[in-house]
Design a protein around this nucleic acid. Structure first.
Lengths: 132, 132
DNA sequence: CTTGACCTTGCCATGATGGCAAGGTTTATG
DNA sequence: CATAAACCTTGCCATCATGGCAAGGTCAAG
């Protein structure tokens, strides 16, 4: 299987497959005589794993750890759970930060009448120190 | 006022002040004879504006637009409100995406007993197509 | 006059991804 | 067979906002 078909089958772009190989996230693939990368179903499976972990917001470095646990038959599930929980905490922090921005911005936008007049509490709010 | 003091007063790093000048977000400052950048209170005020807008998650390009509205005495407040509401929608989308990741991950983590056993639903969930 | 704190420019790095270019290969079609 | 289309290769540049480092100039205090 060439890289294009592998990309379509796994949902990971050909560009990214090469990149993951380059940074050592996946092994170097076999090549045809003319240098084309060759993949099989196992590779597609692995790339799908990576793809899903990315979709859940794991970084490539975290995925590197997940993969080593995936490969390790003697892993403890607590190791995986720790990684997952740390990532949940990270997501929580990011959600909280965005929610706070949102709340501030909504408050400013509500105070703004939003018509043709130049007077605008949003700009004033940005110009003055936040009260909170 | 030199750039270091300006940075402390505005909360924008000296590095970033230079960068904002470089990309044309702020005007080139006056220089002393020996080439040191000089700033005044108005500059600090402007940089604080930028800083607060960054804290609310606006991109530098969005801030560029906000600044041109800030500078324009004849602006319509609706213009500002549109920018703000577009950004709120953007924040909403990001919060929703992160929340979805979080929910999926929490479900997987709850199913994981998290002990010494190698059996782990988190890795299985990543390896298999998501049911939803 | 030396030392330390400050300033200058410029290049490199981050993280994950896309784009483009120049060139080689394979496959299908006329 | 010749050619075109679709594929592959490597490599460099760009994103976005920010930090770091290096080599060198400046200034103020001791």
């Amino acid at each position: 299987m060439n890289i294009g078909e592998t990309a379509r089958a796994s949902g990971v772009s050909a560009k990214m497959i090469r990149h993951y190989e380059h940074i050592g996230l996946i092994r170097e693939s076999n090549r045809t005589f003319s240098g084309y990368r060759q993949y099989n179903e196992r590779d597609v499976h692995l790339l799908r794993f990576i793809r899903r972990a990315r979709d859940l917001g794991f970084s490539l470095e975290q995925i590197r750890q997940l993969l080593s646990l995936w490969d390790d038959p003697g892993r403890a599930s607590s190791d995986v759970k720790h990684l997952a929980e740390a990532h949940i905490a990270d997501l929580d922090a990011r959600i909280a930060a965005l929610s706070e921005m949102r709340a501030t911005l909504v408050a400013l936008a509500q105070a703004c009448h939003g018509d043709h007049r130049p007077d605008c509490p949003i700009l004033q709010g940005l110009a003055a120190p936040p009260d909170s």
